[in-house]
Simulated scan of single mutants.
Amino acid sequence: MATLPGRRSVAKFLVGGTALAIFAACTAPARPVPSSSSGSKPGTTAAAAPGADGPPAGASVSGESTAPSPQPAGGAPSPAASPVHALTATFSLTDPSSPWVLVNKHHPLNPVGYEPPDLVQPQVVLGSGGETALLRVEAADAAGRMFAAAAAAGAAMTLLSSYRSYDTQLALYNNYVAGFGSDDADTKSARAGYSEHQTGLALDIGDAGGACAFDPCFAEQPAAAWAAGNCHRFGFIVRYQLGKDGMTGFFAEPWHLRYVGVEVATDLVAKGYGSYEEYLGLEPAPAYL
């Protein structure tokens, strides 16, 4: 199996008779989380699974939102501060159909075999095919606008990988285990059912010039620089940022964008949070539970 520069590998599989280039996933929790009763309807209270010490600050399990902790003056936002309860719309953090669903090494999809019902191919320049060129409708529409804006700004992007089904992720992860062993595989690929890509809300971008795909040097390419400064305007965040691997469980991936909606993405950036976990006021998830 060829190893990508900088950490990642490409595994090629036949899925449904179509040859797909499947790229390593970027998230992976390890145990089921009960689905929130709030679903994904606007106006419900954001919910996260309670941990051993009870629900995280700012999240609700019983229907009442707790107040966030104050942010330290002049410093980075407090990891305990959770501003989501103050937004005009709130969605579940555990319902896999929610645009806010949290997927990391402590929070898997529930059910782990979740399949989005509204996958479509976005109107963007594609660098992949089959299921890996699909996104949920809302994310696909936003991606189309984002890619068009990037191209107009001279930072044209390509879509390298987006949705991946449970079965595709299982084949990819098993391929990593066969090549590197399970411990190393867990640093390179998500376990099946535990990938943000399975939500249909995540995508990996490349630069139109083709340089540094899935490599740390991608951060220096026009597409990455533009996305870092502008993707929030279309509802996306750069999910795995430099120096945040202790919080997210993954090293910097400037190519991995996650759709959370314009309100959350803009609020996260405006408040200076470097990870979705910190924004939600949740505990770090550097390793599987």
Rank of each mutant, 00 (worst) to 15 (best):
A192R: 06
A192L: 06
G193H: 08
G193E: 09
S195E: 03
S195F: 01
E196G: 15
E196F: 03
H197P: 04
H197Y: 07
Q198Y: 06
T199G: 08
L203K: 04
D204Q: 13
D204R: 12
I205K: 06
I205D: 07
G206K: 12
G209N: 14
G210P: 06
G210L: 09
C212R: 01
C212F: 08
C212D: 12
C212V: 01
A213S: 04
F214C: 07
F214M: 14
D215Q: 08
C217S: 12
C217V: 05
F218R: 05
F218P: 03
F218W: 04
F218G: 03
F218S: 03
F218M: 06
E220C: 07
Q221P: 01
P222D: 09
P222F: 10
P222N: 10
P222L: 11
P222G: 08
W226H: 03
A228P: 00
A228F: 09
A228H: 07
A228S: 12
G229S: 08
C231W: 02
H232A: 15
H232L: 00
F234I: 07
G235E: 12
G235V: 10
F236N: 09
F236M: 07
F236T: 10
R239V: 04
R239P: 00
Y240K: 13
Q241I: 08
Q241K: 15
L242W: 08
L242R: 14
L242S: 14
L242G: 03
K244Y: 12
D245N: 10
G246T: 01
G246V: 00
M247I: 15
A252Y: 04
A252I: 01
E253Q: 12
E253G: 00
E253C: 04
P254E: 02
H256R: 01
H256N: 02
L257D: 03
L257W: 13
R258E: 13
R258I: 00
Y259W: 14
Y259C: 05
V260D: 02
G261A: 06
G261I: 08
G261K: 10
V262E: 14
V262R: 14
V262N: 04
E263Q: 14
V264C: 05
A265L: 06
T266L: 10
T266S: 15
L268V: 12
L268F: 01
V269M: 06
V269P: 00
A270L: 04
A270F: 00
A270V: 01
A270I: 01
K271T: 11
K271W: 01
Y273A: 05
S275I: 10
S275P: 05
E277L: 15
E277C: 13
E277M: 12
E278L: 11
